[in-house]
């Protein structure tokens, strides 16, 4: 599967509130509330304003978390990016 590139929602579009194990995200554009668990908030945080794909994300997250040498990471991130796109929290760049 091609490693698609996505861009996160603009920072002022989302209100992110960690609630214990869950994170509640309010999307000001759609007025929808999304409830997500790790690693979704971490992915959104690592994307910042840049367009990035799963490979970029794996590199960035590896710097912040202990992900070194795990081949599974990239496909998992690609899947999570697809789910974030379905929620409207990231879009294809």
């Amino acid at each position: 599967m091609a490693d698609r590139t996505y861009r996160a929602a603009p920072a002022d579009a989302l209100r992110v509130e960690p609630l214990g194990e869950l994170t509640a995200i309010f999307d000001r554009r759609s007025m929808q509330t999304h409830l997500v668990v790790s690693p979704m908030p971490e992915i959104l945080g690592a994307m910042g304003a840049d367009a990035c794909n799963a490979a970029d994300l794996a590199t960035r997250l590896a710097a912040a978390f202990d992900l070194d040498g795990d081949d599974d990471v990239q496909p998992i991130l690609a899947e999570r990016l697809g789910e974030l796109a379905a929620m409207g929290l990231v879009e294809r760049a």
Partner: peptide, 22 residues
Amino acid sequence: MGEGEAFVRLTEASTNYVALGE
């Protein structure tokens, strides 16, 4: 009960949560 579960239950228990927006 954790904050997340309480949040989910109360969104379900609120009749105007969606209408109030942010």
